[in-house]
Amino acid sequence: MKKILLALGLAVSVALPALAQAREVTFTTELLDYGGDGAYMALYLTDASGAYRGTLWVAGKKSKYYKHLSGWARGSRLDPAEYDGLTGASITSGRTLKITLDLDDALIDSGHEVRVDTAVEDMRDNRADVAVPLTTEGAGKPVSGRGYVRSFRYDF
């Protein structure tokens, strides 16, 4: 757990020298025109058994709404240390969120999954709106979500 967090920490930490096996990954999440307020989103990783391993990004600034991102909330236990420095604004209906992070090579092709939980005020919460394995093969292939996500892809 610690190690993965450290590796994930690279995404924002320039203080640590880049690990040799780190890879730059871009996650692109395009939302539907669902017509509500800005969406809260959590992008996070789970392992092969579905257990939470670490946070990639949280869109939405007000932590009081984080519990609606229920899969991520469970895994991270909403511990601020889990998402410190990994938050940004909520995403307006129809817009796209693009984030680029350095990920440890060991996380790719090893059964890990990227999940996206989404929630919009007064509309339904979507636990695992998107759930895709993180594989070399899957890179660059868009998948559609079940809730507010029109398409999601990662590239490296």
Binding site: S70, M123, R124, D125, R127, R146, G147
Partner: peptide
């Protein structure tokens, strides 16, 4: 996936069917 009852008494079910989310 989730059942919500709001203060007016309205009950809403969030579900998933054939990979699609519904409410």
């Amino acid at each position: 996936e989730q059942i919500v009852r709001d203060l007016s008494g309205q009950v809403v079910v969030y579900y998933s069917r054939d990979g699609q989310a519904g409410a």
